[in-house]
Design a protein around this nucleic acid. Sequence first.
DNA 1: TCCCGTAGTTCAGAAATAACGAACTATTGA
DNA 2: TCAATAGTTCGTTATTTCTGAACTACGGGA
Lengths: 119, 119
Amino acid sequence: MKPLLHPSIEDVTVEGILHALSDPVRVAIYAQIAASSCPQTCSDFLVVTDKEIPKSTLSQHFKTLREAGLIRSERQGVEMRNLSRCLEIEGRFPGLLPGILKAHQIQLGEAARRTKRPA
Amino acid sequence: MKPLLHPSIEDVTVEGILHALSDPVRVAIYAQIAASSCPQTCSDFLVVTDKEIPKSTLSQHFKTLREAGLIRSERQGVEMRNLSRCLEIEGRFPGLLPGILKAHQIQLGEAARRTKRPA
DNA sequence: TCCCGTAGTTCAGAAATAACGAACTATTGA
DNA sequence: TCAATAGTTCGTTATTTCTGAACTACGGGA
């Protein structure tokens, strides 16, 4: 099995980051990894946004996030620990990730309000 | 010909914005429209990032930006004037676009420095 | 040591999306 | 009315994404 690919921080591109986070499932995954202090496994996300995700699809999503430079994945025994590279990215592109995550939060809040008080 | 579609600001999504700006050509177009005080036409972008873009492709790129809510396109005589909706978006997702545009600028600056002093 | 269970990756075919040339529509000016 | 300019739409081709099935990797018993 090929070793996992982690781009060095200077190879990370804005387009790559935006593409990785332009998918609702991936941005939800990334937001949780970035918000959590302890690393998250893939299996923590078999259900995202009330939707079941096949594990092969999930694996591809993690690959996309990893190769965009957003997360670092390390094998820890039988499972894979994923943690955010937000500090590195903040050093290179200050404000980018906070802006995206904040916007994501706002959108989540609006959706919650809509379902709570429907019309 | 169908009238152009402009989503109302509450229908604009973070994912849509990120997807629209995850393409190098589109982010370059949008950055120029956002930076310029006067509206820009499609034809201003037949060459972007030193690459010729076929006009049908260009038209699709503008459609993507438009339907993501990033720009407003208005016919003015024979041409189409495009202007940024950044104020509206800033009202809904504060910091999102500035963060992305700033990161884009940083990346442009690095690329320029690399080609000026190669190796 | 040899299975077995769990966690995740890889592969391959199908489905969805994007690119672009050719044909079309809309507007202006001669 | 005709020609020229600016963009859009359509249809085909190319690329990307999704997902089930098969596979790899590691850990823990018997």
